[in-house]
């Protein structure tokens, strides 16, 4: 159902791509996110930005898709940046101690200039 689609938008940048997500990224939505992220990472962008401003919830299946994309980016010598994390979403990164592994910035503008 389009209403539940976690993918809002993909935007081409001069040096990469930005994926904007929305809603609750749990086990029911993470396969869709994973497919998009891996497709984007396969293009070997210099910079892969994931905008989570409109994501109100994320579980470990959502986090796993981001970790997988991060690993792909590292393999390809690219950068991956997360932005706009709401406190509830940031919390899972902290519990999993991944807040120090990812580059996390406040918003999309900061991510584009990071």
């Amino acid at each position: 159902m389009s209403d539940n689609n976690p993918i809002v938008n993909t935007e081409a940048l001069s040096d990469g791509t930005m994926l904007t997500l929305q809603g609750e990224i749990d086990l029911s939505q993470s396969p869709t996110v994973r497919a998009s992220l891996l497709e984007m990472a396969q293009a070997k962008p210099q910079r892969l930005i994931v905008d989570l401003t409109a994501v109100s919830y994320m579980d470990s299946s959502g986090v796993a898709t981001l970790v997988e994309a991060l690993q792909q980016q590292r393999k390809n010598k690219g950068q991956m940046i997360l932005c706009g994390l709401q406190p509830k979403v940031r919390s899972i990164f902290e519990i999993a101690r991944l807040d120090l592994v990812f580059t996390i910035v406040d918003n999309a503008e900061a991510a584009k200039s990071a």
Partner: peptide, 9 residues
């Protein structure tokens, strides 16, 4: 650092 395995933690 790898995907998965975080749930129980």
């Amino acid at each position: 650092i790898r995907p998965g395995g975080l749930g129980v933690h």
